[in-house]
């Protein structure tokens, strides 16, 4: 019997899907359930963003929306365009993010200002203020360093939304629970990258695993000047920005 490559992929894909359905299918497929194939203790996820590569196309925002079913008008990731004017020695930023940049940006022609794009997403903080304030333990830092929400346990009190300094959380209008970037937890735990990183045409954002000694992040952090957003908040943010301007909030 000859199997074409396409057939093999098809079979492989199906196995993958089945495996991800979980333990219920273990006997049928013989594949290990995801919790065993993937070792949480061996990973510590984060992201690096290279400001100088971002072109403000909004691909990440659309990809995130498609991948995660983000409700309209809310954003797990978004892109901001900064136009920083120097007014008598003071850096005055003018920022916009039309509809989170889900359709990109209308072109700007202002040459008299410094302008650049800043992609934003949950910083998956280690000392996360949102996790700290959750009254019931419905949001948490997973053993592999991802800040997640248990939508079957969240009260919808919205204290976490107030506590996030970065505006990364919202109340899901239908589920009535707090919702946020999962760092595509369903993807990264099966060897894929996040939807935003997969679809970034310039490689401006890259998923990184700090516990993987071969991850390029180590070289990246060693050789570049990096910064996290609002470092004075001391949240232990794990999204590192290269060439981040001081005017970015």
């Amino acid at each position: 019997m000859e199997l074409s490559r396409r057939d093999l992929i098809t079979i492989g894909g199906k196995l993958l899907v089945l495996a991800s359905v979980g333990a219920a299918f273990e006997e049928i497929t013989g594949a290990a359930p995801p919790s065993e194939a993937y070792k949480m203790a061996e990973h510590w996820w984060g992201m690096i963003v290279d400001i100088d590569k971002c072109i403000g196309c909004g691909n990440c925002v659309r990809a995130c929306s498609n991948e995660n079913g983000v409700p309209k008008g809310y954003f797990r990731t978004w892109v901001e365009r900064y136009e920083v004017e120097n007014v008598d020695g003071r850096q005055e930023p003018h920022v916009e993010s039309p509809n989170g940049a889900i359709d990109g940006f209308p072109p700007s022609t202002r040459q008299d200002v410094k302008s650049f794009y800043v992609p934003k997403l949950c910083n998956h903080c280690v000392d996360s203020p949102c996790v700290q304030v959750c009254p019931v333990g419905a949001t948490f830092v997973s053993p592999d360093g991802v800040v997640l929400v248990d939508e079957n346990y969240c009260l919808g009190c919205r204290y976490c939304i107030q506590a996030c300094p970065y505006g990364c959380r919202y109340l899901h209008p239908e589920k009535r629970t707090a919702d946020k970037c999962t760092l595509c937890y369903h993807r990264i735990t099966q060897g894929l990258t996040t939807a935003c990183c997969e679809n970034c045409p310039t490689g401006a954002r890259q998923l990184v695993d700090f516990k993987n000694p071969k991850d390029p992040v180590h070289e990246f952090l060693r050789t570049n000047k990096v910064e996290v957003l609002k470092p004075y908040m001391a949240t232990g943010a794990k999204v590192y920005y290269k060439d981040l301007d001081g005017s970015v909030r």
Partner: peptide
């Protein structure tokens, strides 16, 4: 909750 989140289908 971890398993529930991981079961989301990939697009």
């Amino acid at each position: 909750a971890l398993d529930v989140i991981r079961q989301r289908p990939v697009s």
